[in-house]
Design a protein around this nucleic acid. Structure first.
Lengths: 129, 129
DNA sequence: TATAAGGATTCCAGTGACGGGAAGGTCAAG
DNA sequence: CTTGACCTTCCCGTCACTGGAATCCTTATA
């Protein structure tokens, strides 16, 4: 398979696939013409990566997860730990965004949004320290 | 005021303040020794920026907001629009993170987390495309 | 007065995870 | 034989900083 085919099948841009090779996540073979020659196992890894990235895992997490996946003697506890830490970070991020949203939506609600200059949003931003 | 003083008062690292000058958000004066000489208005702008960044506005948004703040003849509608667009992006981000969290927490819940290799998290990631 | 600390300066490089685009090689169809 | 669709590598840009090196200025202390 050429990169275009795996790209479609894995749902990843060719650029991303080349990048994943560059950082050592996958190691596709090469044909005599210099083209990458992807095997089913490469596609499988790429699909794994695509899914993991969709769930927000970092590239380093993905590396760890791929290693655990390849390790038949892994403990599910190790996988769970990676996922739980990630989950914690997602929760932190959500909490942070919610705080922003609450403040912002209140400010937006209070703003007349007309052609006059007075604006509670700017007033908030410019509030004395 | 030297950069260390404004940094403390505005709650921003000196590095960030230098960066803000570099991209033209602030224009502090210079003393004869080459040190930046911050006026009250510079501090005020930095506090504004600090607050706006806390609310998640991009640097370009901040630039727009500072310009609107400086424009006595602004329409609050313009400010409101910037805030509303940002609010929309925050909401999108939250929704995306929530989707991740829901999937992830379910996977984590199903994972035994013991010393056996079988793991629903990996099974999900490795699911056929 | 020498010196040492602590702050200031600039400049360069790196972050994460790619994306854009140039310059060029390869392949299948007409 | 040419066209166009692929593929290759290489380098730069993203966003908003952060770290670190090398150097300069100021202030406090021995």
């Amino acid at each position: 398979m050429n990169i275009g085919d795996v790209a479609k099948r894995a749902g990843l841009p060719p650029k991303t696939i080349r990048y994943y090779e560059e950082i050592g996540l996958i190691k596709p073979l090469r044909g005599p013409n210099g083209y990458r020659a992807f095997r089913e196992q490469d596609l499988h890894k790429l699909a794994f990566l695509s899914r993991a990235r969709t769930l927000g895992f970092t590239i380093e997490d993905c590396r760890t997860l791929l290693a655990l996946y390849a390790d038949e003697g892994r403990a599910s506890a190790d996988v769970k730990q990676v996922a739980q830490e990630h989950l914690g970070q997602i929760d932190d991020k959500i909490a942070q965004l919610k705080t922003m949203r609450d403040t912002l939506s209140e400010l937006v609600r209070c703003c007349a949004g007309d052609n006059r200059p007075d604006c509670p949003i700017l007033n908030d931003l410019a509030a004395e320290v």
